[in-house]
Amino acid sequence: MTTTPSRLSKYARREQLLDTAMAVVRAQGTDGLTLVTLAEAAGVSRPIVYDHFGTRPGLLLALYRRLEERHRTATTQALRGAAHIPGEIARVMSTAYFACATDMPEFNAISAALKGNPEMEAIQYEMLDNYAEAMAAALLPHSSLTTEGLRLRCIGVLGAAEAIAAELNRERTTIADAITALTDLIAGSLDTEPDR
Rank of each mutant, 00 (worst) to 15 (best):
N130G: 13
T174G: 09
A23Y: 00
N108H: 09
V49K: 03
A181W: 02
T30Q: 07
H52L: 02
R13Y: 00
G58S: 12
P141D: 06
Y97F: 15
L152W: 03
M104I: 06
A178D: 05
I85D: 10
V92E: 03
H142Q: 05
A23N: 02
G81A: 15
Q124G: 01
Y50M: 02
R172V: 02
V157T: 13
A23L: 09
E121N: 11
R26I: 01
A39W: 03
G58R: 13
E88Q: 10
G159C: 10
T192L: 01
I179Y: 10
T4Y: 02
T4S: 14
A39P: 12
Y64K: 08
N130R: 12
E119Y: 10
E68A: 13
A82S: 14
A27Y: 01
D177W: 11
H52I: 01
A178M: 02
H84W: 06
D177F: 10
M104V: 08
L67M: 15
A74Q: 11
L182E: 06
T147W: 02
D19W: 00
L150E: 08
G29L: 06
S111P: 01
E15L: 09
E171Q: 14
V49C: 08
A109C: 03
H71P: 01
L59I: 03
H84I: 00
A166M: 11
E106L: 09
L35T: 09
V44F: 04
E15P: 00
G156W: 07
M1D: 05
T2P: 13
A134G: 05
L139C: 07
T2F: 04
L59N: 04
A42L: 04
I85S: 04
F107W: 12
A42I: 03
T180K: 10
R56S: 05
V24Q: 09
E133K: 13
L145S: 06
A161G: 13
T76W: 10
V44P: 03
P194R: 11
R14I: 02
I85T: 07
G188P: 00
M135S: 11
E40A: 10
A138T: 08
L114Q: 06
D191A: 06
T73D: 13
T55V: 08
D195Y: 02
E171Y: 07
E133M: 07
V157H: 08
